[in-house]
Write a protein that binds this DNA or RNA. Structure first.
Lengths: 133, 133
DNA sequence: GTTCTTGCAAAGTTTTTGCAGATTG
DNA sequence: CAATCTGCAAAAACTTTGCAAGAAC
């Protein structure tokens, strides 16, 4: 547990939302840490449960620090226009998930869930082209 | 609407579960269609609403045919050991999603949701070592 | 000094793009 | 014939890996 790892954890601690490896790399002191090292660090940190991986459907993994006394399981609302992120407290109802698991006899069932929509700031701004409004 | 496109739709029609572009390519008549053409066809078919994209968290997009009178929105239960897939009828409760959208003033909110677990056949077969059935 | 980690560069996957030739209507 | 589509090859984006030099204890 040393060097670049600490720097990465510091970056994550200062962030409210998940970051891609490229973003983490960009935020690290210039020329400080190699991108491959970031990938390796995140894989390790995730295995240790210190970090949680999220997937917003663009082809890049995102990581968020898991805070003390929390398992890190939660979901996000992502703006499909500006990529704004809102962290949510709602989760998929446990009873329904239990029913699904039981009916199909699956064990250790979990889920991945993210919401997408258009945030207030991006509404009424046309489809992205015209200077609409 | 012609050639390779028809062949791809036929492949999808015969499948109960989503396929990756590579799988579709593999299922097409040998040497028949180029992989890049599959990618382009799937992008078009999705834009036309004839196909729906899913993401199981491995880095590959999957596509499933949208049947008549259906919007194609549904979720899956995926075995993390053997990749078996079960199609689900359950969905995230609309009232809760509406509440989330309202509270954060997002419009056109949708969600991506997939479940993961260990299927009956893979249970009790060790952590992946034994000659599982 | 032994072990684990890092940087660098090369390679692997998945997906996208340019362009000329073939296909469609 | 005009418009679109396909194959091929190159490239892009994200991620993984090998290996020798470096850091940690």
């Amino acid at each position: 547990m040393t060097g670049p790892r600490a720097a990465i954890l510091e970056i994550l601690q200062a962030q409210a939302h998940p970051l891609t490896n490229a973003e983490i790399h960009r935020l690290l002191p210039a020329g400080g840490v190699n991108l491959a090292t970031v990938y390796r660090a995140m894989a390790l940190l995730e295995k240790l449960g210190m970090v949680k991986q999220f997937d917003f459907g663009d082809g890049a993994a995102r990581y968020e620090l898991v805070r003390e006394g929390d398992d890190g399981h939660h979901h996000h609302l992502v703006c499909t226009r500006c990529a704004a992120i809102v962290e949510l407290e709602e989760c998929f109802p446990v009873e329904i998930q239990a029913r699904i698991a039981a009916r199909h006899q699956f064990q250790a069932v979990t889920h991945r869930l993210e919401f997408f929509g258009i945030c207030p700031a991006c509404q009424g701004a046309g489809t992205g082209m015209g200077g609409g409004q």
